[in-house]
Amino acid sequence: MGGGSNVAKLAAELAKHKNLHLTICTPSEVTQNYCESIGIPITDFNQASHFDIAFDGCDSLDSNLNALKSNGGIHLSEKVSAELADEYVILAPLQRVTKILSPDIPLTLEIDEKVIGPIQKQLNELKLRSKIRMSNDIAGYVRTASGNLLIDCYADNWGNISFLNDSLAKLNGVIATSFFENLVTLALTFDTDGKIHKFERKIDYDKI
């Protein structure tokens, strides 16, 4: 299980069923602490090599089930979860699903602090607006569990996000990006009335 309020709701439901015999792990410290507080044992995420199914939230999801998972800042380990899972399922409000990813949500880069200057130069050349994420708790930068920085990148629209993401992911010092392309297999979304809307990824077998 990843991070976010919708994953927490799933955990709360699982906690009601004591005989499921599930092995659960999470890269999110918040999710881990919550699960343990409601009686769900958590195994070490770093020891996992395969998941039958992974549940996660997202900040924006397009019609092809590509996602931006930027706000939590743990997209490196969440992307590992997605790649190790047979099924990667997104839980999110229906309004987060749009034809093109929302420009209100940044493409977030996890970067090594030593390459801030060169990366910001590349971002300017790609016509992206960017800012290093600052902490709300201390007068300093937000740092990931690995001690890296987060840069939030914005564009007028994300119509060419695949190209931008590929370009940025190749830069020295970029550890991970928050764009999840061709990883989500299923999205379970809910509207304001609580009705569930299901979206499945369409596979183009000619490209396999």
Rank of each mutant, 00 (worst) to 15 (best):
L149N: 05
N124T: 12
Y154C: 08
Q122A: 12
K121E: 15
T144E: 01
C153V: 07
I116P: 04
V115Q: 08
I100S: 02
D104R: 13
Q95S: 11
I119V: 15
L101R: 04
L101F: 05
I100G: 00
P118C: 09
N157I: 01
D137S: 14
L91K: 06
V97C: 10
I132Q: 05
N157W: 01
D137E: 15
I100L: 11
D137P: 00
I132D: 00
I132P: 05
A145H: 08
S135R: 07
E110R: 08
L94G: 00
L128T: 07
T98H: 10
N136L: 09
Q122S: 15
K131T: 04
N148D: 05
D104N: 15
I111K: 08
I119W: 02
A139M: 08
S146M: 13
W158E: 02
I111Y: 03
Y141L: 04
E110Y: 05
L109H: 03
I119E: 05
Q95M: 06
L84Q: 10
L126K: 06
G147P: 14
S135T: 06
K99L: 12
A85Q: 10
E87P: 02
T98R: 13
D137I: 07
A85F: 03
Y154V: 07
L150Q: 12
I100E: 14
N157S: 14
R96V: 13
R133S: 10
P103R: 05
K131R: 13
D86N: 15
R96N: 11
N136F: 03
I132V: 15
D86S: 15
T108C: 14
A139C: 06
K131F: 10
I132S: 03
G117I: 11
Y141M: 07
K131H: 14
N136R: 13
A145G: 02
S146N: 15
R96K: 15
L126N: 05
I90V: 15
P103I: 06
A139S: 11
E125V: 02
Q122L: 09
P118T: 09
Q120V: 12
I90Q: 04
E125F: 10
E113N: 06
K127R: 13
L94N: 03
A145R: 13
K131I: 03
A92W: 01
Y141R: 04
R96C: 05
A92Q: 01
G117T: 13
T98F: 01
K99Y: 06
R129K: 14
D156L: 13
I90M: 12
C153M: 01
Y88H: 11
G147R: 09
R133V: 13
L91Q: 04
Y154S: 04
E110Q: 14
Y154D: 01
R129W: 02
L126S: 06
A85T: 02
A155P: 04
Q120W: 00
E113I: 15
R129I: 05
N157Y: 07
L101G: 02
K127D: 12
L126V: 00
V142A: 09
A139Y: 03
N136Q: 13
D137A: 06
I119S: 06
D156R: 05
D156W: 01
Y88E: 08
S102C: 11
I111C: 07
N124S: 15
L94Q: 11
N136T: 09
R129L: 09
L101P: 01
R143P: 00
S130Y: 13
A85C: 09
R96S: 07
L150Y: 02
T98Y: 00
S135A: 10
S130K: 01
L84R: 12
K114F: 12
